[in-house]
């Protein structure tokens, strides 16, 4: 594998992480640790593909748009279930998130294995539309499809909203100190629901992108969950900053694919080294955690009320 190819592929893979990570950042900024992200990304891929099944024969623009909308709806629905459990019913966020992941992965397997019978007609026909309008080729810079640019646009927009707008200020306040936000008249529940649903929808796009653009294969859905966990790790790596996550996701992509470039550099590691090398992103995350925990800089810490359900003081 050529080195340039390796970089370009890493960037493309990184966009999967970027979507998952941006979605999780939005959710965590509202104080909710959504461990359901891997499941939500799976559902995003599945619901997008499901829409493609009924779009066969339509013009390419509609096909892509409808698949993206379906994916967003699928993710938002998962986000709504998660919010109902953790915001309204105040269930434990970790347990709920893990349940969402198990649920999402299971449902996706059911849907996708059903469609694999005639995958080319059911959803893979749309690959060329997703790689449009820039090129239909599958290698090099020209292989970057429309969703890659969408991913970067979403990350930039999130960064702008979080740091430069009133909505972002309110959202951060909800995640830092919901009691204070409540006292000044911010609708805490609405912000939590909104951030979780939008975040889940963004993450869901990551699943669709991975199946329909990056991999483009029948088997693609089986590996989304692993990438979902990496997206959650990426949130910590980026210190909850969407702008950093653009760079971070590419780095994670490179680390994840390191096992494919190292042999071509003349170093022979053998087959058993591949899974070890794929752990690199996690190792880096742990190192970042150690560094930020030592530095104690307040801006680099997770939102103060992350994982803590908010009970309004009654007396």
């Amino acid at each position: 594998m050529m080195f340039l190819d390796y970089i370009l592929t890493s960037v493309a893979l990184g966009m999967t992480f970027l979507l998952g990570c941006t979605g999780e950042i939005l959710t965590e900024k509202a104080g909710h640790l959504n461990l359901g992200i891997p499941g939500i990304m799976c559902i995003g891929g599945a619901s997008g593909c499901l829409a493609l099944k009924y779009c066969y024969g339509m013009p390419g623009f509609f096909v892509v748009t409808l698949a993206i909308i379906a994916s967003i709806l699928g993710g938002a629905l998962m986000g709504a279930i998660y919010s109902f459990l953790t915001v309204t019913l105040k269930a434990n966020q970790n347990v709920t998130g893990l349940a969402m992941t198990t649920f999402g992965v299971g449902v996706t397997k059911y849907i996708m294995s059903g469609m694999a019978i005639d995958a080319t007609k059911n959803y893979l026909y749309a690959l060329e539309y997703f790689r449009a309008p820039f090129a239909k080729s599958t290698t090099g810079l020209n292989s970057w499809g429309v969703m890659m640019y969408l991913a970067i646009a979403i990350a930039l927009a999130s960064a702008y909203v979080l740091s430069r707008t009133r909505v972002g200020l309110h959202l951060r306040a909800v995640g830092e100190n919901p009691a204070t936000a409540d006292a000044v008249g911010i609708n805490v529940t609405a912000y939590k629901y909104g951030a979780t649903c939008i975040g889940s929808a963004v993450a869901a796009l990551g699943g669709l992108y991975y199946i329909m653009d990056f991999m483009g294969s029948v088997e693609a859905y089986k590996t989304i969950e692993a990438l979902g966990w990496l997206s959650v790790a990426l949130v910590i790596f980026t210190l909850w900053k969407p702008l950093v996550s653009i760079v971070g996701s590419i780095l994670f992509g490179m680390l994840y694919l390191a096992s494919s470039i190292i042999p071509s550099l003349g170093i022979n590691l053998g087959m058993s080294a591949t899974p070890l090398l794929q752990m690199l992103p996690y190792v880096v995350t742990i190192i970042v955690l150690v560094i930020t925990s030592i530095s104690k800089k307040r801006e680099n810490q997770p939102p103060a009320s992350l994982g803590i359900p908010y009970f309004r003081e009654e007396r």
Binding site: R166, L169, H170, R172, A173, E176, N177, A179, T180, A181, A183, V184, G185, I186, R298, E299, A304
Partner: peptide, 20 residues
């Protein structure tokens, strides 16, 4: 209130504008 309702990570101005 006796217990301040402020967001620690924000500046004074950000706290003042919050919710407005």
């Amino acid at each position: 209130h006796q217990h301040f309702k402020l967001v620690d990570l924000f500046t004074a101005a950000e706290n003042v504008i919050l919710g407005n």
